[in-house]
Computed example of a mutant assay.
Amino acid sequence: MRVVVTGGAGFIGANLVAALLDRLEITEVRVVDDFSSGHKANLAGLAATVHEGSILEPELLDAAFAGADAVVHLAALPSVPRSVADPTASHRVNATGTPPVLEAARRAGGLHVVAASSSAVCGAGPELPKRESMRPEPLSPYAVDKLAAEGYLRAYHHCYGLGVLPLRFFNVFGPLQPADHAYAAVVPAFLTAALAGRPVTVHGDGGQTRDFVYVGTVAQVLCTAVLRRVVDPEPVNVALGTGATLLELIAELGEVLGRPLDVAHTEPRAGDVRDSVADSTRLRELFPDLAPVPLREGLAGTARWLRTQQPQP
């Protein structure tokens, strides 16, 4: 089986490429990436074929998709705060970039398309856990873009018979997740600060809940979706239904690092959702053999990787 990963040099993408290459059923992995947020170093030592360029380039996609069996569409401009700062750039990649991928999959003979959406589309409704059937209430441009992408996948399935699977990622963390920019996710941001001996910065009171999922668990879901050709036009939550507050996360990190962490509180960020915990029923139905990595084990693995990336004080 030949698999294309758009955004394959990114955090989730590179972890997925490594996981796919470990599967005997996979004969070739191709990566499409313009390296605007992914890094070539993430693919070092991996026997993947790289097609450098944008998902907005039809000729590039045709070359990458020719003879393939499936596409995992992860290419994105991530981050809610980044989308608030530059909504047009976010829309161009995250929403406008979806139809070209689907069209290329059609031209290549109707490839199976597994695509990343986001828990951000659920919004700030008070009901928990977040079920896929709830009315979306996006609060940020990024969330709107991802909701549009879900709509395109559904439409291509119903109009053209394309086999699709939109997956709503919740708070994914793990090795290769960048922490050296203003829009870093909380786990690498907290760990980087703690390892450098600085207080961790919490936007708001720290009572926000998140469903943290280790990237190895996500890669397991994506590999299984491709190999079993799991098709469903409706979105599926990729999370475990085990929410933790940011303060609880900080306590877990303290246990992993062997010392309590200092905390500095600042103002809440625009567009952030207060509570985000998933209903994982549909995920468990579609992937009954899923063996998720526990939170503390995932945090420990992430800390080990980060220690190799920065000098210690």
Score class of each variant (00 low, 15 high):
V172G: 06
G125R: 08
L60R: 03
I55H: 08
G243T: 01
R307H: 03
V226C: 12
A95K: 00
G110D: 02
R82C: 07
G206Q: 08
P126Y: 07
V213H: 04
G109F: 04
G207P: 07
Q177L: 02
G271W: 15
E52Q: 15
Y160R: 11
G13M: 06
V277S: 10
L24N: 14
D62T: 02
P166Q: 03
A85K: 14
A149Y: 05
R2E: 13
G197C: 06
P138M: 06
L139K: 10
E127D: 15
R131I: 02
L176D: 03
L246I: 07
T96E: 08
V72T: 05
A48W: 02
A9P: 01
H39R: 05
K130H: 01
L46C: 13
L246R: 05
T27A: 15
L46A: 10
D232M: 12
R2F: 03
F190M: 05
G271A: 11
L139I: 13
H39Y: 04
A9H: 01
S117A: 10
R154C: 10
A68G: 05
V72A: 14
A120V: 11
S36E: 09
R2I: 09
L306P: 02
G161R: 14
L60V: 06
P58G: 08
L290E: 06
P294D: 02
A95W: 00
L139H: 04
G123M: 08
L247A: 06
P178V: 08
T192W: 09
D272Q: 15
R168D: 01
V226I: 12
R210S: 02
V114Y: 15
V5I: 13
G207K: 12
V84M: 12
D262E: 15
F170A: 01
S83A: 11
T96N: 03
V72L: 11
A63K: 04
E132F: 04
T98G: 03
P188N: 04
V4N: 12
E103Y: 07
L77N: 14
A68P: 06
L61A: 08
G174D: 11
I55E: 12
F170S: 01
L253T: 01
A124H: 13
H112V: 09
G8T: 03
L191K: 08
R269K: 14
C159L: 04
P87N: 05
Q177M: 09
S54L: 15
L257P: 10
V273H: 11
R304L: 14
R282Y: 12
A68K: 11
S276R: 09
R131A: 08
L295Q: 01
D232G: 12
L295G: 00
D33R: 06
W305H: 09
V202A: 11
H181E: 05
Y142W: 06
A194W: 08
A70K: 06
V273I: 15
L246D: 04
Y152N: 06
A244M: 13
G151N: 07
G163I: 01
E28C: 10
P136V: 09
H203V: 04
D211A: 12
E137L: 15
A148M: 01
G174A: 14
R23S: 14
A89H: 00
L227H: 14
A244W: 02
P288Y: 09
